[in-house]
Computed example of a mutant assay.
Amino acid sequence: MLREATGDDVNLMLSWRNQEINRQASKTSHVITADEHARWWAVVRTDPTRRVLVYVRDGVPSGVVTFFDLRVSGPATGSWGFYLDADGLAARGETLPAWLEVMREAVDHAFDDLGLDRLEGEVLGHNAVVRQMNRRFRFVEGTPRTEISDGREITVIPISLDRANRRRR
């Protein structure tokens, strides 16, 4: 289940974002400080082009889905990303089912609730497992580009999924 994030979720979101596996899969790999996170939260909670949702699995908050750059005029488009409570899900033996569920719910939310025609995102080139999962959900990869972030060179691959190509249950 996805629900709107609230101020009560801020510390949980920060702790998940700072888990090593999430930092290495992100463009910014440094440990996010409480002040940096508070500034982000102050901006996103009032920005009409953004949504922050908490993924809840079996009643336990277990991840974050963000939608940003939402445009509703012309073809409705937006970008997205997510991260999970990797440590908590691994301890419960629920990583793969949670990953499948959060992706399914996020794609459904993008097209059914937000009314998007196209959903976009990015994946790091070294993240073969995420790239494979994206293909399973019918995301198409664009042309990779090289960036420098947090002092490291990364390959960023744009991804997209059109409403007509989404996988239906």
Rank of each mutant, 00 (worst) to 15 (best):
M1L: 12
M1V: 11
R3T: 03
R3W: 04
E4P: 06
E4F: 11
T6N: 09
D9A: 06
L12C: 06
L12I: 13
L12M: 11
M13D: 01
M13I: 08
L14H: 06
S15G: 15
S15D: 06
W16F: 04
W16V: 01
Q19F: 05
Q24K: 10
S26K: 05
K27F: 15
T28R: 08
T28H: 11
S29Y: 04
S29F: 07
V31I: 12
A34D: 11
E36I: 08
E36S: 12
H37P: 09
W40S: 02
W40F: 10
A42N: 15
T46H: 14
T46D: 13
D47C: 07
R50N: 12
R50K: 12
R51C: 02
L53N: 02
V54L: 06
R57D: 15
G59W: 04
V60F: 15
S62D: 07
S62E: 09
V64M: 08
V65E: 03
F67R: 00
D69C: 09
L70S: 02
L70H: 01
R71I: 00
V72G: 03
V72C: 04
S73G: 09
P75C: 07
G78K: 01
S79W: 00
W80Q: 01
G81N: 05
G81Y: 02
F82G: 02
Y83V: 02
L84Y: 10
L84K: 03
D85V: 02
D85W: 01
A86K: 08
D87V: 11
D87A: 10
D87C: 09
D87G: 12
D87K: 14
L89C: 10
T95K: 08
T95V: 13
L96Q: 09
L96W: 14
P97G: 05
P97T: 11
A98L: 03
A98M: 03
E101A: 05
E101F: 04
E101S: 08
E101Q: 12
V102A: 04
M103R: 04
M103A: 14
R104W: 10
A106R: 00
A106D: 01
V107E: 01
D108W: 07
A110M: 03
D112I: 02
D113P: 01
L114D: 00
L114I: 00
D117W: 00
L119V: 01
L119K: 00
E120R: 15
E122R: 15
V123A: 08
N127R: 06
A128S: 06
V130E: 04
R131L: 11
R131A: 14
Q132H: 10
R135C: 13
R135A: 15
R135E: 11
R136C: 13
F137H: 04
R138L: 15
R138H: 11
R138D: 05
V140G: 12
V140M: 11
G142E: 08
G142H: 08
T146Y: 13
E147W: 13
I148F: 15
I148P: 03
S149V: 09
E153T: 05
E153V: 05
I154E: 14
I154M: 15
I154V: 04
T155D: 08
V156A: 03
V156C: 05
P158F: 04
P158A: 14
I159D: 00
I159W: 00
S160A: 14
D162C: 11
D162Q: 15
R163H: 14
A164M: 09
R166A: 02
R167I: 10
R168Y: 14
R169M: 13
